[in-house]
């Protein structure tokens, strides 16, 4: 078993090296049944949940019913979402593959495509292709403890992992979730977080820089920076995988903490973000140093990431 999450995807890619040598120009035979990888499948926007200002949750279903059943993915993977007439953007999947039938995307309103998405109404048509990227190698995580660290919108891809492990709870050891946001009003998936706070099989720790006035009465979290939460958890770095997603500034301090705890570098998994145009390892917009975020990532071990000169 290779020792790196995402390694299986890498081997899929380096499979090119064993690409059968072409006899003359007879390359037709190698692509029987191949689909056009750029073609978005039509899907409908079925539900909009305006969770937090400019951080809404959108639920989609494919027009073709078969795809709703067959679309399977790993937590941490992403799709290319097309807003018809505007363009395409990579968006990480927020729903869990354990709850099939629809895809949920938590999207920050930040660019041209996402801005257009916010103008759509329920039942409008979009295009979706994917899933892309390596995602978390959940089979490898099984039998281990998990320390899931989310900052801000970083909760979007990690929510997929949280529900995946909770829906397969017996396969995993202790689960700690640390979730930090700027203010108590910026916490995403608030209703679900309340549920998690009540569950005994996951330790959910919240931290915000400022608790808003209206939340003061029932506030069940901490105040400060996400690294302050480390004193509230006990982790065994030998049996724990840390999964991190958040703003670039967060990585630096969280990584420092994890290294102090003597996590080995391939037990630290981080989700990175880049500009993407294809999602399939061709357009080269998402390259970080020596890797493509879209096929070698977006989940990188810290070992991989620290060897990438432009990591954060």
């Amino acid at each position: 078993m290779p020792d790196r999450v995402g390694f299986d995807i890498t081997t899929a890619r380096t499979g090119f090296n064993t690409f059968p040598e072409r006899v003359g120009l007879d390359i037709l035979s190698e692509r029987v049944g191949k689909q056009d990888p750029h073609k978005p499948e039509p899907a409908r926007l079925v539900r909009i949940d305006p969770m937090v200002e400019d951080h809404w949750l959108f639920q989609f279903r494919f027009v073709e019913e078969r795809l709703n059943r067959e679309f399977s993915y790993r937590p941490g993977q992403f799709v290319m979402l097309s807003v018809i007439g505007v363009g395409e953007a990579p968006i990480s999947i927020s729903s869990s593959p354990t709850r099939p039938g629809m895809i949920e995307l938590c999207v920050r309103r930040t660019g041209r495509v996402t801005d257009a998405l916010y103008r759509l109404k329920e039942n409008d048509l979009v295009g979706i292709r994917g899933p892309y990227g390596n995602g978390f190698n959940v089979d490898k995580l099984k039998g281990n403890d998990l320390l899931i660290i989310a900052g801000g919108l970083g909760m979007a891809p990690l929510r997929s992992l949280v529900w995946y492990v909770l829906d397969n709870r017996k396969d995993f050891g202790d689960i700690n979730l640390m979730y930090g946001a700027r203010t108590s009003g910026d916490l995403l998936f608030k209703n679900e977080i309340d549920l998690l706070l009540n569950r005994k099989d996951i330790k959910c720790l919240l931290i915000v820089e400022r608790v808003q006035y209206e939340h003061r009465v029932n506030w069940r979290g901490h105040t400060g920076l996400i690294t302050d939460l480390f004193k509230h958890v006990e982790v065994n770095p030998k049996s724990t995988y840390a999964a991190i997603c958040g703003p670039p500034v967060m990585y630096k301090f969280v990584l420092q903490k994890l290294l102090e705890l003597e996590f080995s570098k391939d037990r630290i998994l981080m989700s990175l973000e880049r500009k993407m145009k294809c999602g399939i390892g061709k357009c080269a917009h998402c390259t970080i140093g020596y890797k493509y975020t879209c096929i070698h990532g977006p989940i990188f071990t810290y070992w991989d990431a620290m060897n990438l000169p432009e990591m954060i």
Partner: peptide
């Protein structure tokens, strides 16, 4: 370029033309 456009995410436009190119 063949290697880049081949593989798991095969680029059909490229290879349609490639099949029709005599060199």
């Amino acid at each position: 370029l063949d290697k880049v456009f081949a593989g798991r995410y095969h680029e059909p436009r490229y290879f349609d033309r490639r099949d029709n190119l005599i060199i």
